[in-house]
Design a protein around this nucleic acid. Sequence first.
DNA 1: CATATATGAATTGTATGCAAGATTAGAAAT
DNA 2: ATTTCTAATCTTGCATACAATTCATATATG
Lengths: 227, 227
Amino acid sequence: MSQAFRLKQSIEDAVIAGEFLPGDRLDEASLAERFGVSRTPIREALLQLGAEGFIDVRPRRGAIVSVPSPTRLFEMFETMAEIESACGRLAARRLTPDNDAAMETAHRACEIAAREGDSEQYYADNRNFHEAIYRASRNSFLADQAFALHKRLSAYRRIQLRARNRLLQSLQEHAGILEAIRAGDEQLAATRLHDHVLVQGERFSDMVLGLAGDRRSDASSRSGTAK
Amino acid sequence: MSQAFRLKQSIEDAVIAGEFLPGDRLDEASLAERFGVSRTPIREALLQLGAEGFIDVRPRRGAIVSVPSPTRLFEMFETMAEIESACGRLAARRLTPDNDAAMETAHRACEIAAREGDSEQYYADNRNFHEAIYRASRNSFLADQAFALHKRLSAYRRIQLRARNRLLQSLQEHAGILEAIRAGDEQLAATRLHDHVLVQGERFSDMVLGLAGDRRSDASSRSGTAK
DNA sequence: CATATATGAATTGTATGCAAGATTAGAAAT
DNA sequence: ATTTCTAATCTTGCATACAATTCATATATG
C-alpha cells in the first residue's frame, strides 16, 4: 500500500503516544529522514491529519500538534459527551446479544484492571468498552465519528485516569451504563453516558484552567470565542 | 495563500454544486489541467477531502465522489439528527439575545422563500437557519462538526426540497423548533430537531431504496424515533 | 462462446529541484 | 539596553521526472 497512508498512521500513533506533545513542530524534513522517505509522502500524511483536525497545518508555516485552548477542549469533551450519549441511546434501543456480549467482555476486563489498580491497562480496556458501545449503536457512521473524536481526545483523557479513585468510580459508572442499556432505557443510558464523559472533561478542563488562566465559559456567561 | 487549500475549496464547491456526481472519477491530470496547476497541489487537495470523508480516495485507484449505500446514507442522516438535536438542546439551555435574533432573521427569510415556493432560495435560507442553531449551541466545536456533516449531506438534501408541500411543512417544523428553544425546553427542542432532520433522511432513503434494492434493515425500519 | 492470459496504455506514488515566503541573527541607530 | 532594519538561512509550496501499479484491449486457449 502507499506509504502516505502508513505514514499518516505512524505519525498519528506517535502523537497519541505522546511522543510529540501539543505545540510541537512537525517538520517535514526531519520526519522524512526519520522514516526514510522523501518529503512528498510526509506532506501528504500531514495534510490528511490536518484535515481530520488531529494536527494544525498553517499554510507556509508548517504543522504543529494542535493546542486546543481550555475552552476549545471543554467544547470537545462536551461534544464527545453528546455523541456518546447518542450511541448509548441507540444501543439501548437496538441491543443485540452479540453487542451485549462484547460490552460484557470489555466490562469484565475493566473490572480486573481496576481491581489491580493498573491504570495503563484500564486505559486500554476502557477504550474497548467505549468502542463496544459505539458499535452497539448499530450505526457505523456514528460509531466512526465517535471513534475519531475519542482518538483525538485520548492524549487528554489518559492523564487523569492516574488517580486510583477515579478508576473505581469510572468502573461503577460503566456498570450503571450497561444496566441502563440492557434495560432498554434510552433516556437513562444517554444521561449516564453523558455524565460519565463530561465528568472527565470537567476534571481535565479544571486542571488545565489552573495552569492556563483561561475561563471555561460553558453554560454560563457569554463565552468570548465567537466564531 | 497556498494553492492546495484554494483547490480543496474549489473542488468541494464543484462537488456540492453537483458538477461531479457521486461515483464520478476525480482524475488528477484533468483537474490539474482545468485549474492550470500541476498534479501536486491537486493531490494534496484530494487527500484532504478524502480525510474529511467528502470523497473516496482509494490508494492506487484514484479518487471518486463518495457513493454511500442507502444504509450508510440513512446512518449519516441519523447521525445528523443526533448532532442537530444536541445543538438544539444546548441552544435551549444557553440562548442569548444575539443568537435568538439570528435565528429569527433566518426563519423570516425561510418564510418568504416558502411562501413564494422558491425552493432554490429556501434551500439557501434553510441552511442559514440550521447554521444559526448550530451557533446558538455556543459550542463552536460541535457547531463545526454539524456544519461539516451538513455540507456532506447537502447533495442529498437538496433533491427532496423540490416538493412544495415539503417546503411549507419544513417551515412549520422550524417554527416549532424555535418555539421550543425559546421556551428553554431542552427535551422538546431536541426531539423536534431530531424528527425534523430524520424525516428528510427517511424520505430520501426510501427514494434511494426504490432504485437500489439495498436493505436498510439493521438501522431503522419501523419508524419509531421513539423518545 | 466463454474464460484466461499477456501486453501496452493510462494513472497513481514518490523523489528531486527550484522558487517564494517565513524565521532568525546581526548590525546600526536611538 | 532596546528597537529596527537588513540580510542570510531555513522551510514550505509547486513543478517536473521517473518508477510502480492498475486498467483496458486484444490474443490465445479450452
